[in-house]
Structures are given as structure tokens and as C-alpha cells.
Design a binder for these strands. Structure first.
Lengths: 337, 337
DNA sequence: GGCGTAGGTGCAATCGATTGCACTAATGCA
DNA sequence: TGCATTAGTGCAATCGATTGCACCTACGCC
């Protein structure tokens, strides 16, 4: 029913061998065919409505022109920009992305990556870096091309594109100190993610360096619920022992908003809150959220670029690219009482 | 480098014909093989680390087990849930989704759909319905399986999954009337989208039926900027001639928020605003947005279900599925002054 | 004991495009 | 004029899996 017209059909109509048609239609081999022949074939192909069969081509050339993109959850607003950035680089180069969601579940991730490999993807862009890289190390051994984005994979020498989280946290602390805060709570992200580790590490060392009272609470996931639960727990028990909250990401910060509200605390008057990522809509929250902008779209672009250069064998060194961040001052931070 | 182990390798190791291996590994044909043979082959396949090559299989079976998903823009928060809904139905059935973004541009859409067809997708789920269906009608003629989601394609008999927009608008009007509003502004969505048309049509007829003063302003896109510009224009010129705004979707409503704020008007005290879709984070806006919940995830699931039943030839009638909506009352609507 | 049948495998074609090699004709050069 | 190139095409194998058909064996039945 579909794609009735094949290379052989065009060849028959043109009275030539399929090989000649193939060569005519491929810009790289077109020079091998007499100009006039090529022109004629192209016209016939067009008239017949010929469309190449990417599947058949992929079988022969051993390239699917497809890239697998592995993310935790598309509904987390930082990922759509990354995906679109990836797409923007891939599409003009003839590649397509196939996006899968792992929900942070390693078994699901394993299954999905296997499925992508069966589909003969030419490479993987992975945004679900865990500290134990069992999943990916096996692919590294098999020579699969992988680029990490947003998170790194400790121990496995894959190229990686991340934002400068350390600088982001430092800028936040500097901002808060400037507002007179000295006891600060950090809602840390998952400790099996490179971002969670790096951000909380920087938080701790900055607090120590500046002589601040820094408290760290770990969260299982980068989610609103986790952030809310963590602050709830603290507020229900010890009471408020901090004047500012540095969240591991915007979702955790939003959870903090919720908790503060239900406990009758105002943000930023009673407690300042800072997010991380500057995901969409943070400016429309109540209050508008002070956060660190991470260039997600650009990270996607860069990751795609690195992957294709790996595939083309241009760049084989495991480059680490760190993109700059910037502190976005909005309404969720204020002078400490 | 990749997928070194083929069916033939397994066959050689097992001392049988590749055909037997194929039959053993395929649950549907496994019965044709002697039990013990099948068991032995499976063990060898596993030991060798055999993974099927979906590309080769697809060439022979003329099924790619891949579905193309065409959406306007992944960063619009209503689409990730739809995509995840689609995925949730597809994955357990061996299918994968390939998502593309058109940015509302028909040429891009044309290119992307062609690319999907070249990749031999087994069907299309399309969320970018335009009123002129030139793009899709050609595929309908060629027998390509298509299901519309979120929007419909007028004139082309594709199955479609939508939310009950009419009921949603009616509920909004009823709510606003109950609060004493009688002059209402409608920020209508694009007039080349079925949602934009239906919602604004219902708005107009409801206003007429109830004797309200209803004004409609059309927007080019479902975007924050368009919503803001539309309200800006009105407020800059005629002044405030309405006490409530019914937006075509949450993004337009958010644009209205912005415009009201820059004009020194308070929501909901001075003007009530209602969105549509209940996209993520609307509850965290300032003020929390009253809106209509559309079951996007479920719409995705349903669309995938319809498409697969089309593909399997079970359901060939162009079913129209309409999912119920519900009004979510939050803080952006109040009694009219 | 002979024949029919079903179960179990193998053979080989096929899906559609690509590409190394071979072949022919035309051109260049001496 | 003769020989070596080169340009332009065709032939056929190949990628990896699937499947219609043929074949063989062993069994059951009369």
C-alpha cells in the first residue's frame, strides 16, 4: 500500500539498471553517472513519486540515521528544550531522534536502551546518568557511541555536556550572603546523579569557606513532592532554623514553596528560596522564582554535535563541555530579617 | 561493531538452518519447532548475545513497528503528557514513537512527515490539525493510517481523539455567570485549528443564548505573547470593557495575566481570567489559574489505541472519541464588581 | 504391511537499496 | 594506427530476517 515505487520501478521506467538509479539519486555518487542520464532519472523518479526506503538503505549501509535519546521524563520541563536542541542539530543532517522515558527506573532504562539498539540506532544521547554506570559501560565496551547530556557518567569516558553547576551554586550563595543570609538549607537532588552530587558538594564547600551555617537534606527525586515533603518534615519538627533555601532544582524549590505556604510562612519575607535550571514558567510562579539559568537548548545542540562528530569518527576523545550559567534574580529572595 | 551476532551465527552454532532459529525465537511460530530444538536454540542465542535486527525484520515484514507523532512544539506543556500517553500504550506492544515538531509551519510539517514515511512508519498520530488538510489528505489516499489527537482534521475521515471543548466552555460561562459577569472577552485560538474554532463557536453561542455581552479576539497562535499582545491592544485603546476573560488555552490566559499586570489591573479582583487545558504548573501561577482540565495523557493513550487497531485492521471506521473535561476552580476568578 | 498424514526442517526467494567488480566504448597519447 | 586510460553502466552479491514450499521421517490406521 505504501511506498509502492521502488528503485527498481524507476530503473525499469528509465530503461537502466537499478544501480544507475541509485547512483544518480545519491549526491555523493552522482558524479559517476553521465549528467544527462542523471537528469533524466531524477525526472522520472520525481514523476513516479519515488521515495527512498530508509529501512532498506539502513540494512545495506549499516546506518539507521537514527539517534536514541534517553531521558527520565518528558514532562519535566527542562527536557523538552534539550530534545528540541538535539532535533535542531540532527534534522538538517538527515538524522532523526527517538526519545524514550525511563522514569528513573533502571530496568525500564535497560529495556528501552536494548530496544533502541535493536533498532540499530547510530548513537545514544543519555540524560539519565547514574553514578553506577553498569548500564552504559557495556555499550561502551561494544563500541556504541554515547554522549551524556545534563548529567555525567562517572567512571565511563563518554563525552558529556553539562551546565556549570558549581558556578551556579556559588553565585546563589554569593547572592544570599549579600542579602544577609547565614543559615541556609540545601534541598539536594538525588545522590546518584552527578548534578545532585556536584551541586551539594559545592554548596557544602562554599558554606564552609564563608563560615555559613549550611544544612543539607537529600531527596530521592528531583520532584515537587520530594521538595515539599523534605521541608514539611523539617518545619513540622525542628521548626525554622534557616532563612533561605537553595534547592537542587526548580521542582524541589516549588515543593518548598508549597510547604512554606501550608506552614503559614511567606516567601521571600520569611524565607528566601532559590531554584536551579530556570525551567519554563518559573517567572510566573508566586512569587516569581529566583533561579539559575541553564542553557538547555544549547546543551541539546552541543550534545548532538558531539555525537555526530563521534559517529563520523572526527572526534574520538571524550570531550567534556561545560556551558555557562547565569543567576536570574526574581522575587523569591529578599534580605534576611 | 554492533550487533555482531546474527540469526545465521546462531544457526551455525546450533547446527540448524537460520529458518529454524527464526521460528524458534518468534513466539508466533515457535509451535512449528520441536520443543527441545527450540529450547536449545534459545539457550544458544542467549549465550551468544543475539539481538534481533529490527531493521532487517522490518524490511522483510513491511512493518517498522514505529509510529510517527507529529506535534507543534514539545515545549508547550500539554504535549509531553500526550506523548507519554502514546508511549505507554505503544511500548508494551513492541512499537516505538518517533516525535517531530512542526512549529506550526506547514512546509516543515510536510518535510517531517515525508521523512517519517521514508522511515516506513506504520502510522501517524497527528496533533497539528489544520483546517485545510492538504497535507494529510494525500496520505489518506495512499492508505496511510492516521489518527488525529487534540485537534481534528475537518473533511478528512481520520479517527480523532479530542476533549469535550464545548462542554468545557459551557462550564466556564456558567461559572462566570454565577459570579455575576456579563461582559466577557474571549481570547480565541487560531482559526485554522479545530480547537480554536470549536471553543470560540461555543463561546459565541453560549453568550447569545444567555444574553451576555461577548467579545471575541482572534489570535494567530496559542502563545503567551499573542495573549498578552491582544489584551494590551484592547487595554491601550478602548479601555476595559469586560470583567472576565475566557482564554482559548492556558498560554493565552497567562499572556492575559501579564497584560493585566502591566496595566495595573488585578486578577481576579478587577478581571477574572479562565484558561483551558489545565497544563502543568497552572496551579502555581499568580494567581492560581482557574481552567478546564483536559485529559491529555488519556488522549494520548486513546489515540495510540485507535491507531494500532487501525493498523491491525480491527477498527477501520473513522471513530471520533471525545473525552470529558472538568472545570478546575482556582484563584483567577471572582465575583464581578 | 502399505499408505496417508502430520510434524519438523531445510531450501531458497524475498524485502529495497548499495557497491565492488567487470565490461564496453570512447578518448588520449605517442 | 595501436594501446592504455577513463568514463559510464550493468551484474550480482550483500545486509539480516522471514516464510512459502518441498522434503523426509515417523507414526497411525486399516
Amino acid at each position: 500500500m505504501r511506498n509502492r515505487v521502488t528503485l527498481a520501478d524507476v530503473a525499469k521506467a528509465a530503461g537502466v539498471n537499478p544501480a544507475t538509479v541509485s547512483r544518480s539519486l545519491n549526491p555523493a555518487t552522482e558524479a559517476q553517472v553521465r549528467k544527462e542520464t542523471a537528469r533524466k532519472i531524477k525526472k522520472i523518479a520525481k514523476d513516479l513519486g519515488y521515495t527512498p526506503n530508509t529501512v532498506a538503505r539502513g540494512l545495506r549501509t549499516r546506518k539507521s540515521l537514527t539517534i536514541g535519546v534517553v531521558i527520565p521524563d518528558l514532562t519535566n520541563p527542562i527536557f523538552p528544550p534539550i530534545v528540541r536542541g538535539i532535533d535542531s542539530y540532527l534534522l538538517p543532517r538527515g538524522y532523526s531522534a527517538m526519545v524514550v522515558n525511563t522514569d528513573g527506573n533502571k530496568e525500564i532504562e535497560q529495556t528501552l536502551i536494548s530496544s533502541l539498539m535493536e533498532r540499530q540506532v547510530d548513537g545514544l544521547i543519555v540524560a539519565t546518568g547514574h553514578t553506577e554506570g553498569d548500564l552504559l559501560s557495556q555499550y561502551h565496551e561494544r563500541g556504541v557511541k554515547v554522549v551524556m547530556v545534563n548529567r555525567e557518567s562517572p567512571g565511563i569516558p563518554f563525552p558529556a555536556v553539562t551546565s556549570d553547576d558549581g558556578a551556579g551554586i556559588s553565585a546563589i550563595i554569593e547572592h544570599l550572603v549579600g542579602l544577609g543570609h547565614s543559615s541556609i538549607l540545601h534541598l539536594a537532588g538525588p545522590s546518584d546523579s552527578s548534578t545532585g552530587i556536584l551541586r551539594s558538594k559545592t554548596f557544602t564547600s562554599e558554606c564552609k569557606r564563608r563560615g555559613l551555617l549550611g544544612k543539607v537534606i537529600k531527596n530521592e527525586n528531583y520532584s515537587i513532592d520530594d521538595g515539599q515533603a523534605a521541608v514539611d518534615k523539617l518545619l513540622d519538627h525542628g521548626g525554622k532554623s534557616f532563612t533561605a533555601i537553595v534547592a537542587g532544582n526548580d521542582l524541589l524549590a516549588l515543593g518548598a514553596y508549597h510547604s512554606l505556604r501550608t506552614h503559614g510562612l511567606r516567601c521571600p519575607e520569611d524565607v528566601s528560596v532559590v531554584g536551579f535550571n530556570n525551567m519554563p514558567f518559573t517567572a510566573d510562579f508566586q512569587p516569581p522564582m529566583t533561579t539559575v539559568n541553564a542553557p538547555h537548548y544549547d546543551m541539546g545542540v552541543e550534545a548532538a554535535r558531539l555525537l555526530l562528530s563521534q559517529i563520523d569518527g572526527i572526534d574520538t576523545a571524550p570531550v567534556k563541555v561545560t556551558l555557562p550559567v547565569s543567576l536570574i534574580l526574581r522575587g523569591s529572595t529578599a534580605r534576611a530579617l
